[in-house]
Amino acid sequence: MAEAESKSLDTAGHDLDTTTFQSESAMSAKMMELNAKERIVSAKAEIELAKAEIRLAQLQIQKARTIAARSKSRSPISSQSSPHSSNSHEYSLSIPEDISKKTAHEPAAKSLPTTQARTSKENRDQVNRVQRYFRIAFIRSADQSVSRSNVKRGWWCAHFDGDYVARQMELHPDKPPLLLVAGKDDTEICELPLKETGLTRKKAAEILPLEFEQVWMANGGREYLLKAISSGQAKPTYATAMLPRDAQSASVKT
């Protein structure tokens, strides 16, 4: 009798160990899956950031080439020794004869900037502005009376392109994220200049660009911005300038 009870207890213990092991294995597999998904999102964000850095480098190269081209197109200046002093020089512009003989009713044609040149200048202006990123926690007014251990915090994130917000996110614990971009969402986006927000004085409020981009990408921010660009509602900012041209073209076609 005692031996039968002992075997029964051993069998029950073995079944319990097996169930526990299976449960732990399932939990471990789930954690591995979540970690893999997080790494995928992080990798995608890093790829997009790398593309943005490549685009920035291309714009800087284009800027350098433009400056070099302008310096080459300047009229040559010829220096001549002055008869009054050996240390002083007179400078005269060498003007081509055909231009000097033009009459008043035959003005030289003005060179008009092309659309591509204007776009490149706008992109350079956007890229040269200072870019800063911020994240602060917030508590809904309805939850302010709840104890700290039970309160649900949200996050307010913003990308400042120069003095004003280019992209903004509100991440709530119990509802979908709110994404805003300059131009399309001007009635909802923060309209204060950076100095007036007080964000620069808040401890640990400023974050790295990669931290912002990872959250922005994970919550569908890239697709949202592309839709705003394709509908013509997005204001030209650093964020729009950094998007690859092929992605913008594809969004317009769709």
Rank of each mutant, 00 (worst) to 15 (best):
A2N: 11
E3A: 06
E5P: 06
D10W: 05
H14C: 10
H14Q: 15
L16K: 14
L16N: 12
L16R: 14
D17Q: 13
F21V: 10
A29S: 07
M31P: 01
E33R: 12
E38G: 01
R39E: 11
E46G: 01
E53I: 01
I61R: 14
Q62R: 14
K63Y: 02
A69P: 02
A69L: 10
I77M: 13
S94Y: 04
P113H: 00
P113R: 01
K121D: 12
E122S: 15
Q126V: 07
R129G: 05
R132I: 03
D143F: 04
N150D: 12
R153W: 02
W156F: 09
C157G: 02
C157M: 11
G162H: 01
V165H: 02
K175S: 10
P176S: 13
P176Q: 12
P177H: 06
L178H: 12
D185F: 05
E191A: 15
L199W: 08
T200L: 14
L210I: 10
L210K: 05
E213Y: 04
W216E: 04
G220P: 01
G221I: 02
E223Q: 11
K227T: 08
Q233G: 01
P236M: 03
L243D: 04
P244K: 08
R245T: 12
D246A: 06
K253L: 13
